[in-house]
Amino acid sequence: MGGGRVRIGVTVFPGSNCDRDALHAVERLGAVPVELWHADPDLKGVDAVIVPGGFSYGDYLRPGAIARFAKVMAPLEDFAFSGGPVLGVCNGFQVLTEAHLLPGALLRNISMRFVCDRVRVRVEATDTPWTAGCEAGEELALPVAHNEGNYFADPATLAELEDEGRVVLRYLENPNGSANDIAGVCNEGRNVVGIMPHPERVSDPALGSDEGLKILGSVLLGAGV
């Protein structure tokens, strides 16, 4: 990854609304924030990519369904296939499932209501670039804010995720009806992680907590910084 500071890209789709928050959190980490515009098929040499939350393309049709075809997604898919660390947060998780970089899908919350709250989650897997800085079994209080966070996968896929330790975060209080209380999963290569909670929203003590930096900062460990 070269000698300079780690560069972390944040994709910006029309309707992304946590992009600026993610860029700000990256800055707080001491890494270089790089905006990746949806219409620009170029990752600008970043070392890691965050696909942020929001309502890309208005969440019209299905959340993430249109964003996955944005021009920036082609190099992002290549980056992911070659082992580059990618984190999808909330809508970003939805985009990554629609793009088949992660298994499963995110359905409407079982309550049929948008849910914005702090929930406790347990870190189930620490062998990913986005959780390496956490301890196995560590409990974090993270914000969620979503309408479609109800994780679904067919039973075979769920069994595979559990057997291979690919459930990365698990809710201790399930806010949306997710199968197996799943709050986050990773791909087979473990470099692509999708989570519903928003670590960037708890990355500043001024807002009461910076527990989210444990997740976002994990990627710096792999970079040897």
Partner: peptide, 27 residues
């Protein structure tokens, strides 16, 4: 009610709904 509203997007909300007034920071 406010659980159905995203009250944290923008990462400026210092005191969330439920208090006497909301407090926001200026980055």
């Amino acid at each position: 009610i406010y659980r159905q509203y995203d009250h944290e997007v923008g990462t400026n909300t210092v005191v969330a709904p439920g208090a006497d007034a909301a407090v926001m920071r200026i980055k």
